[in-house]
Structures are given as structure tokens and as C-alpha cells.
């Protein structure tokens, strides 16, 4: 096309998207955001036995400005909700959110006045991780799936197209209440 021909031979050319995706997914730094018992599993995942350092994400940043990933580990109370949103807003883009455990995903067993029924009411969630609490292996599985997503992420106009497609698919999807049967 043009650029490839001018490069010296031996240079492996890959798309900018793939390069950026590889960089981003390989040093994903989580924000310290433990709220309840899921945080214990999250800490276990970060410690020696499960060792998130293997994926370049052992540093849980205390400052949201240095973090890319927010792992919402636990139930979010109505009083905590504005705090969580502020921390999310303080994180520099690009940023991702994992709703860890049943409570962060849907309110879990706390169906009452005090608890936010799913953290997606407050921040956009990339991965919902079930479990009460999920084991560190499950958290790592969610993180690796998120890594795959980030690695394949599009840039520029491609990204806008993907966002439009996802939005349209979500709007066209059948609400849960209208779905019948176990697996459909």
C-alpha cells in the first residue's frame, strides 16, 4: 500500500490497534476498591499463591489516577455509590470495570433499601463475574477474558462502529422476563 514498502525488511508490521491492545492489556493496573468479602478473594488473587503479577497487574493502585481497571469487589451501599462514581470519574481513560460477585453484579442477596441493585446503575461494567464470593481462579478467568477483549479493542472510527453495533444489539435483545425455557 505504501508504508509497508518503505519500511526496511525484517520489521514485523502489525496494526496499531493490535499493538495498542497488547500494551494496554499487559499492564492493566487495578484500583484498590474492596468493599466486602469479595475483596478477600481479590487480595488472595493478588498474593503469592495466585499471583496476578504473572499478568502484569500485581500493583493495586491506591490512587485512581494511576489505575485502568476498577474491580468492584462487594456490595455497594447507597451511601457508597457517589464515592464509587467519583473514583471511577477520577480514573484516566481508557478504563474498565469488573463487577465482582453477585452483589456488585445484581445486588445479590441484599434486595433491600440500602444496597444498589447492581453496580451497572452507577458505572458501565465490562465483565460481570458471578459467585458469592467468586474464587480467585474465577476472578483471574474474568481478568483474562477482559484482557482478550482489551487486546482486540478497536480504535478510532472502528471503535465507534463497534460501540454502535453493541448498542443496537442490546436494544434489540429480548428482556429477561420475556425469555422462557432454561437455556434460550
Amino acid at each position: 500500500m505504501g508504508l509497508e514498502e518503505k519500511l526496511p525488511s525484517g520489521v514485523v508490521l502489525t496494526s496499531v490497534e493490535k499493538l495498542a491492545g497488547y500494551m494496554r492489556k499487559s499492564s492493566l493496573w487495578p484500583a484498590t476498591f474492596g468493599l466486602a468479602c469479595c475483596a478477600i478473594e481479590m487480595m488472595a488473587a493478588g498474593a503469592g499463591r495466585y499471583d496476578l503479577a504473572r499478568f502484569g497487574m500485581e500493583v493495586f493502585r491506591a490512587s485512581p489516577r494511576q489505575a485502568d481497571l476498577m474491580i468492584v469487589a462487594g456490595r455497594v451501599s447507597n451511601k457508597m455509590a457517589p464515592v464509587l462514581r467519583q473514583i471511577y470519574d477520577q480514573m484516566a481513560a481508557p478504563k474498565w470495570v469488573i463487577a465482582m460477585g453477585a452483589c456488585a453484579s445484581s445486588g445479590g442477596m441484599f434486595n433491600n433499601y440500602a444496597i444498589v441493585q447492581g453496580v451497572d446503575h452507577i458505572v458501565p461494567v465490562d465483565i460481570y463475574l458471578p459467585g458469592c464470593p467468586p474464587r480467585p481462579e474465577m476472578l483471574m478467568d474474568a481478568i483474562l477474558k477482559l484482557h482478550e477483549n482489551i487486546g482486540d479493542a478497536k480504535l478510532g472510527s472502528n471503535r465507534e462502529r463497534v460501540i454502535r453495533e453493541v448498542e443496537a444489539a442490546a436494544l434489540a435483545a429480548k428482556p429477561t422476563i420475556q425469555i422462557t425455557g432454561l437455556l434460550s
Binding site: G107, Y113, P175, T176, I177, Q178, L182
Partner: peptide, 8 residues
């Protein structure tokens, strides 16, 4: 609390 929707 809110009503929880399941499939059907």
C-alpha cells in the same frame, strides 16, 4: 427491595 425478574 425490587422485584427480581427471571426467565418467565
Amino acid at each position: 427491595g425490587i422485584p427480581v425478574e427471571y426467565k418467565g
